[in-house]
Simulated assay, not measured.
Amino acid sequence: MTAHVATVDELFTRERRDERTVLVDTTRRDYDAHWLCTSAWKAGNFLRHAGVREGVTVGVAGNGPVALLACFGATLLGATTRPNPPADLADETNLQAIVAPVDELESDRYELPRGTSMLGYGDKPETPGIKNFDAGLWSENPSFPPQSLSPETGLLTDGSRTVSHARALESARNLIDEYEIEAGDRVVVREPLAAVEVAIAGVFAPLLAGAVTVLEGESGDEDEGDDAVRERAEVDEDATVYTISDATTEESATQIDPTVLSLSDRTS
């Protein structure tokens, strides 16, 4: 059943923590709602130390569970996430932090505004100034103070437009209704999350419907620590499978076209 929420942070309340699978990574490990909520709270608490707050933007590179936690943590704080941003960010005026694989940050791939916090995951950073996102995340307090966000708070941006919580949730509900996505169904994401439409269709719509986001593509940003290891995901044979991909698939799955979201008419 689709959750009745006004802002995305309401999808991470204590009451929603249970053992249902909500995420499957590229190695076919699964993650339950208890892990997702608690880890998102930790991410939000750690990002707060980096100055993340309402009104700022956080760049998040990657399409795996750790990258999603960074996005959710920023969301809890009222910040706007820019998924998989370009390398040249020097002219961004409100970029407070960037979360990316350590090797990307240490290679000076990104041109950042002065004062932007760099948070690296994957390997342990050796460069001064890059904080260890993994270590900070897992050592944080697994609770989060209640927030009061406006539905018009920015949720996602691609650099040229910003989508609010209200617009993202409205679009997600329309998508759920159009494709009849139900709890337990599986939404397989085969497109980069840099596109706002893909992020809403592949991540936020399944969260809203109680469905499962299945990540596919290149692996590399999954955390291999004990806290992240889960059993191999067991597929519910009665669940409907959806796929988000530009390529035509021959498998028995319903293909979702993220462009039906038509976000441009109510974004800033």
Rank of each mutant, 00 (worst) to 15 (best):
G73V: 01
S143R: 13
Y179W: 02
A166D: 01
H49N: 15
E224D: 15
L36I: 11
S262M: 14
T26P: 00
E218H: 06
I176F: 02
E231A: 14
D185E: 03
D223Q: 10
D88A: 10
Q147S: 13
N84G: 02
Y31I: 07
F133D: 03
C37P: 00
A6K: 15
E182W: 01
N45R: 14
A183G: 12
S219C: 09
E178V: 00
G122E: 00
E197G: 10
N84A: 13
S143T: 15
G220M: 02
E218G: 01
S262K: 15
E10V: 07
S150G: 04
P192C: 09
G73A: 08
R53A: 14
N63M: 04
R167V: 12
A183Q: 15
K131H: 15
N45K: 05
P151S: 09
G122S: 06
P101N: 04
V24C: 08
V99T: 00
G184Q: 08
L95H: 07
L69R: 05
S148R: 14
L77P: 00
S264F: 09
E234S: 11
E19C: 06
D25C: 06
G59T: 06
E224A: 10
E222I: 00
L149N: 06
E251G: 11
A253F: 13
G120E: 01
L47T: 09
L175H: 04
R28D: 15
R28E: 15
R29E: 02
L119E: 06
G59W: 01
T249R: 13
T259V: 12
T116W: 01
D238T: 13
L137Y: 11
H34L: 14
